[in-house]
């Protein structure tokens, strides 16, 4: 049972890591606490619903189109709201409050257009895969680990995309520029990098990551207009727990949260699985605010 739960935790952890990485890219480079990331996440699932169920396109086409729209939704937020504030050098609080405004608008527009009830993308029972549990004895009741096909896809796609993005961020020129923007965005401008263009790219990539995570979950369990907020909080906590200073920290944090939630479900009850997220947050903020991978700074 424990192994089964750990595998489940690993799978959801991979998706959390994906969303957290998207949040981390935006948060580190633009310093915006992008609460509207939750709205982007929700919107992606509904874009998929619109293309796949309402417009009867193929699943892969719908996903690609949905991700494209999601990316542009994120970019729209940057251009319409954050950019003017950025030019005026508004404070972080003003950005955060505007972000709450955007989230409210998008989530309620979705609720108005598609209704409050839960929507399902794939109906029927999904195909089940069984794997042999290498740790269980021959007479154990939990010899097999049971996974649904969407879960297998969730893990594989997330893992591949995360690895790809981490490589892009550390090896290519694009990634290095983003890292430079994270450190000092005004200085980067001096070297001829168009900061505004890069912010658009950053928002596009970050939003697509959130959208992919959203679509992977939506295909499995469906969605309603309010799914975004809990996931955003998990992503933000993952970024802090893993360490704000690095992108791999967000990934590590995502997996850690996935595992801890699985453990809580095993030991206590699924009702309390969101509690562990904030318990971890408080513990880390109080005792290790720089996160697992962060380097300890001298306090000033």
């Amino acid at each position: 049972m424990l192994i089964q739960l750990l595998v489940n935790g690993c799978i959801s952890g991979a998706v959390y890591a994906l969303v957290a990485l998207g949040f981390s890219i935006i948060y580190r480079s633009t310093k915006i606490f992008h609460i509207a990331h939750a709205a982007v996440y929700t919107a992606a699932a509904y874009f998929l619903y619109m293309f796949f169920i309402q417009l009867h396109l193929g699943l892969v086409t719908s996903i690609v189109l949905g991700l494209f729209c999601t990316g542009w939704l994120g970019v729209l937020m940057e251009i319409a709201v954050y950019r003017p504030l950025f030019k005026e050098e508004a404070s972080g609080s003003v950005m955060l409050v505007s972000s709450i405004g955007i989230m409210t608008i998008v989530v309620n527009t979705i609720a108005m257009l598609w209704g409050n009830e839960t929507k399902i993308i794939l109906s029927g029972i999904s195909e089940v895969k069984k794997f042999t549990n290498p740790f269980a004895g021959a007479d154990s009741a939990f010899k097999e680990i049971i996974l649904t096909m969407p879960q297998v896809y969730q893990f594989c796609i997330s893992a591949v995309i995360i690895l790809l993005l981490l490589i892009v961020l550390s090896r290519t020129k694009f990634g290095k520029k983003i890292k430079a923007i994270c450190d000092n965005d005004r200085l980067v401008e001096i070297f001829g990098v168009s900061l505004l263009r890069y912010r658009v790219k950053i928002f596009f990539v970050g939003s697509v990551m959130a959208g992919l995570g959203s679509i992977l979950f939506a295909v499995d369990v469906g969605m309603d207009p309010y799914v975004g907020m809990p996931i955003l909080l998990i992503a933000a906590v993952a970024v802090i727990v893993g360490g704000v200073e690095s992108f791999s920290g967000a990934v590590l944090g995502g997996f850690l949260l996935g595992f801890s939630k699985a453990l809580v479900v095993w030991k206590m009850s699924a009702k309390w699985e969101n509690m562990i997220v904030f318990l971890l947050l408080i513990l880390f903020l109080l005792f290790r605010p720089e996160g697992i991978l962060g380097r300890r700074k001298r306090r000033v």
Binding site: G101, I102, T104, I105, N108
Partner: peptide, 12 residues
């Protein structure tokens, strides 16, 4: 929903 959307717009 419209009320919330208006609040969001006003906020921004």
């Amino acid at each position: 929903n419209l009320r919330q959307i208006l609040f969001g717009l006003i906020l921004i």
